[in-house]
Nucleic acid binder design. Sequence first.
DNA 1: CCGAAATAGTCAGTGCCCTGAGTAATCGGC
DNA 2: GCCGATTACTCAGGGCACTGACTATTTCGG
Lengths: 154, 154
Amino acid sequence: MAAVDLTTHPGHLARRLQQAHYLLWNTMVSEEITSPQFAVLNALVAEPGLDQRTVGERVGLDRSTIAEVISRLGRRGLLDKVRDPQDGRRFLLRLTDDGLRTHRKLTVRTARMNQVFLAPLSADEQSVFFELIQRVADAAEGLRNPTEPLAAQR
Amino acid sequence: MAAVDLTTHPGHLARRLQQAHYLLWNTMVSEEITSPQFAVLNALVAEPGLDQRTVGERVGLDRSTIAEVISRLGRRGLLDKVRDPQDGRRFLLRLTDDGLRTHRKLTVRTARMNQVFLAPLSADEQSVFFELIQRVADAAEGLRNPTEPLAAQR
DNA sequence: CCGAAATAGTCAGTGCCCTGAGTAATCGGC
DNA sequence: GCCGATTACTCAGGGCACTGACTATTTCGG
């Protein structure tokens, strides 16, 4: 009786979108390397020598999750992890040659997959798609990460 | 050098969107009941007596995941699970009074949360947002679920 | 009627994602 | 110089999501 229409619930749509993407990634990009793992590789291509926490910040993963992902990438020999001699709390991360190669290979496939994934939208619609999702995600992240938490509301 | 801009990668955006939603759900709706669990309750409000597989289809969860979610809801006494006397393979699912109450309560809070979540978009933009995401998700699901798999390509 | 195929559900294994609690190292004020 | 706060990371625990292999039941063709 009082059931709700989930197609107007952004959370439900976001989950379905991610599932669809997961599926396509598995078939078109890689069964070994996942999309979050690729994001980490990509962050380290852009900025080699980052520490774990910062990589997590770049790709949007919390401290626990980034630790797991990095440990998996390390086990596969795609990156190296060394203590920062300047700050014994940090681990500095750097891709191995294998990691670099893997990133290059997956970059190509990822581009192809994105084309297929976005094929139902025109070029204009794709821009709107990106922009709207980003606005919503950024705003929600802002709610959690209050730069100036005081006197903002009320 | 060859790093890629993830803000134009729909998979990355979908993940960030879902994370943002997860966070907001936890603070504004419930710490006990998750969004997928609410989707299951909602499906059973709309169609009491569904079997497990069909509920999974309605909310977009595979057979394994739906089994876990339903077992958790059962443990909390929000739904009942009985063998279908007509077909001994099936379990028929039905909300308890507690389940119905919980659904009603969360429906209100979910609506409030969606307003906050979508606040950065105008009403028009919200419609576009829904429509574009749905088109992409539907198309990708169609790729996996070929109604007519033969002679389609090549 | 009977055996093969299809179907509903379970189970083990992998990976993502978060919180809360704990450890080790560094930093900052006095 | 020392002590308390902060910071980087780890660990335990709960939940979502998928695949592949397995069991039990039903269905359908001959």
